[in-house]
């Protein structure tokens, strides 16, 4: 910045470090708790540093699973399937519908737009009961389809791609038309590559959205083999009336956190760029 006053810069760093410490504290404690045995976690004062039981806990959680619940591997797999189906499904249908709405003049265009738009930001939580009934009537309970498709019916991605497409210069379409590209060729050869930042950002958002779903899978799955890892936490905390088995719970929480965290951090640049440039 302008003046290079070491003091004010140092203060800024201090504030930031304090902020980071507060924000990351719960996550650090998760790792700590996952590295101690259950007895240590009931002793006051509680540990703030790492213990030596991390891999033991990991082994227990992964191999035998937490008593009475689905094996971790299956839950992670279910979460992954759900996250990917939601992310790819939503991106695909949203790219197509945004393309139609921005680049074609057709009857009922505005009607369609408003129909999609009404679902914008309307989470399943709000219409949970009737949606559940519809899915039940369609026989999609306890299926991946039932788990994902109703969540695909929201307009965030369509809306974001619409914004992206509107910012693509008209001349690109004109040049492509002169170059003999038809509508689908323009879509695949030009529009999608040009929008890749938004698509990447949307992938991150939707992957996390899908991975982190809670209420919907809770309602729609009764079969143990369909449980996702995020859902399992609650069950584990209530498994017994006594004090929860924190070392296993925190290890599971850690496993549930790692994939979305990796996706966000790994795609950070694209994600931040796409998110803040198009959504604003």
């Amino acid at each position: 910045m302008i003046e290079n006053r070491p003091v004010s810069t140092a203060v800024s760093h201090l504030v930031l470090l304090a902020g980071v410490a507060i924000v990351l504290f719960p996550i650090w404690i998760t790792i700590v708790a996952a590295s101690h045995d259950v007895a240590r976690l009931l002793e006051v004062p509680l540990p703030l540093g790492l213990g030596d039981q991390f891999f033991e806990n990991l082994k227990q959680v992964v191999s035998t699973g937490v008593e009475g619940s689905t094996p971790i591997g299956i839950m992670l797999f279910n979460s992954l399937v759900m996250a990917l189906m939601i992310a790819f499904g939503k991106i695909t249908i949203s790219l197509l519908s945004a393309y139609a709405i921005v680049y074609f003049d057709f009857r009922f265009r505005m009607l369609f737009f408003w129909m999609i738009f009404l679902t914008l930001m309307l989470p399943v939580e709000v219409r949970i009961l009737p949606t559940y009934e519809v899915v039940a009537q369609l026989g999609m309970l306890d299926t991946y389809w039932g788990l994902t498709i109703p969540l695909i019916a929201s307009a965030t991605a369509t809306f974001m791609f619409r914004q992206t497409f509107l910012s693509v210069p008209d001349e690109l379409l004109e040049a492509a038309r002169i170059d003999g590209a038809g509508p689908m060729q323009f879509f695949f050869d030009i529009l999608i590559p040009v929008s890749r930042t938004s698509i990447a950002a949307m992938f991150v958002i939707l992957f996390i959205y899908g991975w982190n779903q809670y209420l919907w899978p809770l309602l729609i799955t009764t079969d143990k083999s369909m449980v996702t890892i995020v859902m399992s936490i609650k069950g584990m905390m209530e498994a017994l009336e006594e004090t929860p088995k924190w070392h296993h719970i925190m290890m599971t929480a850690l496993l549930a956190m790692i994939p979305p965290v990796l996706v966000v951090i790994g795609m950070q640049k694209l994600f931040v760029k796409g998110l803040t440039e198009t959504e604003k």
Partner: peptide, 23 residues
């Protein structure tokens, strides 16, 4: 700093709840 502060975004609400309950 951005990389460090971005973490909570990735954490599921229910997991976030569990972490804070633990604390």
């Amino acid at each position: 700093y951005r990389t460090l502060l971005i973490w909570p975004y990735a954490v599921a609400p229910v997991i976030a709840g569990a972490l804070w309950v633990f604390l």
